[in-house]
Design a protein around this nucleic acid. Structure first.
Lengths: 235, 235
DNA sequence: ACCTGAACACCGTTCAAGT
DNA sequence: ACCTGAACACCGTTCAAGT
């Protein structure tokens, strides 16, 4: 795939502008690292999507043979775990130091959903990845937990609250990637009159269906958290 | 599980007990159909899991060549879509005709989560599959929508309510497959004191962490639905 | 119409050879 | 230590030949 040509050239973050192909043997400067691999993966997925993202395409973007990747990473799964933790840094936790706790949770939740709607294939990975191996993810939890604690949510309810919010966010991120006509019952409308009517009765002024459902659920979870707050605590 | 011979013999639902290998050419009776393929896929996944489930393993279980499957199904993705719709029949909607609406929603939600915790790889598929191609899924929605309508939930909120519940259920199903020690912060504990404390402050009497979070979120969504009910309607 | 068997264009991953 | 290039053991899918 002709390098020096538009598609094959390394990204702005890449090592060298191109040049002649590298011979075998250890290069004088490292051409690969966790950071470079993660950034190249992010770029590759942004450009070509997850379905075309292979170890080969990743290697090509780094101007390296596919097998070279295995000196730095154990598997494609591990690349995806690195990517997942990196993507977490894009989630907006700024509200927890600048806004009332409920506005902060709302800002965080919408941002979290939007980020992972763009990375749906990572969701089954995040949902199951131990935090010990994901430092950026842990940083995010620390911010959210601090926000809830300061708001007076009882200590025993902080983790259940975060997990409930996160589960809802992951499911909603998947839902956000669904086609707009997912609930069109088509020729099966007669077999499902109540549901078909409910689909038609949605408020079309209120915004995208996925956003309405997200707002509804987020309001519910916030109200439940609010009801657990110890009285007389901060903001 | 233990059918006649160790591996190659067809399941109890299969066509023939085994016999000599089939020659090329159209058999006198059809050996494949959507129903048989779906059942074989379900069985295969129950026995060997999703990671070992291939078109080859599916074909072997049906005692046909892999290429024979393509006379009946367009792709592996389509097999998974058939499977998804079939798995929906395992979700318990019985409460909607026998219990108060909130108990019915609870029964449905727990069952839905448990069923898909056992089929996590289907979740990204269900979340995005148009109902028009999934009759069993649509039947389920009809039951739930009827239950909510009868409970007095305003028509415009039924779909948002179902979508919010379902998003929460899918995310929780993924969460239910996570390792028990997912939140152990390990050597990063000092960098996340508040979160680490919250992990330790969970109520260990209350059951599995994933179950506590699910109960918390489900209570929240039910309370929100309840608050929207038109007064004086049936339950 | 619907099977078999060979073939195709991939995949992720391993490993010897090279520097 | 860390690259290249060849090789391995798969994958899902296509298609001609057969009945």
């Amino acid at each position: 795939m002709a390098d020096g040509s538009p598609a094959g050239a390394p990204a702005a973050t890449g090592p060298e502008p191109s040049g002649p192909p590298r011979r075998a043997g250890r290069p004088h400067e490292n051409v690969l690292s966790r950071k470079l691999i993660t950034e190249a993966a992010l770029k590759a997925i942004a450009v070509e999507g997850y379905s075309a993202f292979t170890m080969s395409s990743l290697a090509r973007r780094l101007s390296v043979a596919p097998s070279a990747l295995y000196n730095h990473v154990a598997s494609k799964q591990e690349v995806l775990r690195w990517l997942q933790d990196h993507v977490m840094t894009q989630v907006d936790v700024s509200g927890f130091t600048t806004e009332p706790w409920d506005a902060a949770v709302r800002r965080w939740a919408w941002s979290y959903r939007d980020v992972f709607a763009g990375h749906a294939p990572l969701i089954p990975i995040v949902a199951v990845l131990p935090v010990a191996g994901a430092p950026e993810t842990l940083k995010m939890y620390e911010k959210v937990a601090s926000g809830l604690a300061a708001a007076g949510v009882p200590a025993a309810l902080i983790v259940p609250g975060i997990v409930a919010l996160e589960s809802f966010i992951f499911g909603s991120a998947l839902d956000a990637t669904a086609p707009a006509d997912i609930f069109d019952t088509g020729e099966l409308a007669e077999t499902s009159p109540t549901f078909t009517a409910a689909v038609g009765a949605q408020d079309r002024e209120a915004g995208a269906p996925a956003d309405n459902a997200f707002r509804f659920g987020l309001d519910a979870l916030l109200a439940q958290l609010q009801s657990t707050q110890a009285t007389g605590s901060a903001d």
